[in-house]
């Protein structure tokens, strides 16, 4: 079955099993996510949400079935090029106190996949860095080592890093886990505005705790025990 053009993500009968695990982490997953939508993946702890998002990105390869990211099979060698059009904020983002890279350097690293040392940063970098950093209240922390920032501050830095890549597809795994209520709403607003501003871009958010994002989500996918139990289209 050929991937349909215009699909950001397509999963066909996908099974994922971790090495040494007795049963598959996700099984028989069929999912199609078009461009220009905000998708929320929700479910209880251990349901397979992170496995699903990492399968979409091609970080995990299906033992059965096929996963397509921006029309390219995740088993294809070209997956590296495709991933350059995507951004990811992982769930386990915390860095230890001795991590010496500054917050600004960490954000700059987000643009490293296409660069060698002689390539300048894109023209928009400084403007968008200041814009997102100001919006998320981390502007004054940019020159500080990432390791000394709190969990919430580090999470915001990773969100800025993801956005500044101007991704076609934005993957956020539990992006509200370390944020206060005000910051959660701010991140939701920024992601929604990003999709509106960058027409055709999509965002896939994994969350099990925050309901505000549900109001804005175009698609809500519910996963439980490794199986999609419900897909709801809101618009």
């Amino acid at each position: 079955m050929q991937p349909i053009r215009g699909e950001a993500v397509r999963l066909e009968n996908v099974w994922i099993t971790y090495s040494g695990a007795g049963k598959p982490a996700i099984r028989n997953i069929n999912l199609s996510i078009p461009f220009g939508v905000l998708t929320l993946i929700r479910g209880p702890n251990g349901a397979g949400k992170t496995t699903l998002i990492e399968t979409c990105l091609g970080l995990l390869k299906p033992i059965k079935g096929n996963a397509y990211l921006l029309g390219v099979n995740t088993k294809d060698e070209r997956i590296f090029e495709v991933r350059r059009k995507c951004s990811y904020v992982p769930q386990d983002f915390m860095k230890p106190p001795y991590e010496h890279y500054t917050a600004k350097k960490v954000i700059e690293m987000g643009l490293s996949s296409n660069r060698v040392i002689t390539d300048p940063l894109p023209d928009y970098f400084q403007y968008e860095l200041e814009f997102y950093a100001k919006e998320l209240d981390v502007l004054s922390l940019l020159e500080k080592p990432i390791g000394i920032l709190s969990g919430g501050q580090q999470q915001k830095v990773f969100i800025v890093r993801a956005l500044i890549r101007r991704p076609k597809l934005l993957f956020l795994d539990e992006p509200f886990s370390s944020l206060d209520k005000e910051s959660r709403e701010k991140v939701t607003e920024i992601v929604v505005n990003y999709i509106k501003k960058h027409r055709g871009s999509s965002a896939i958010i994994v969350s099990h705790s925050f309901s505000k994002i549900e109001e804005y989500a175009d698609i809500i996918v519910t996963i439980n025990d490794g199986v999609i139990t419900d897909i709801r289209f809101q618009r």
């Binding site: 970080l59 995507c86 990811y88 992982p90 991590e99 643009l111 490293s112 996949s113 040392i117």
Partner: peptide, 17 residues
């Protein structure tokens, strides 16, 4: 740039291409 990204977070670097 790529080496720094790998040293900082290998999984994230891979996810970013």
């Amino acid at each position: 740039p790529q080496i720094d990204a790998i040293l900082f977070d290998q999984k994230l670097a891979e996810a970013e291409g």
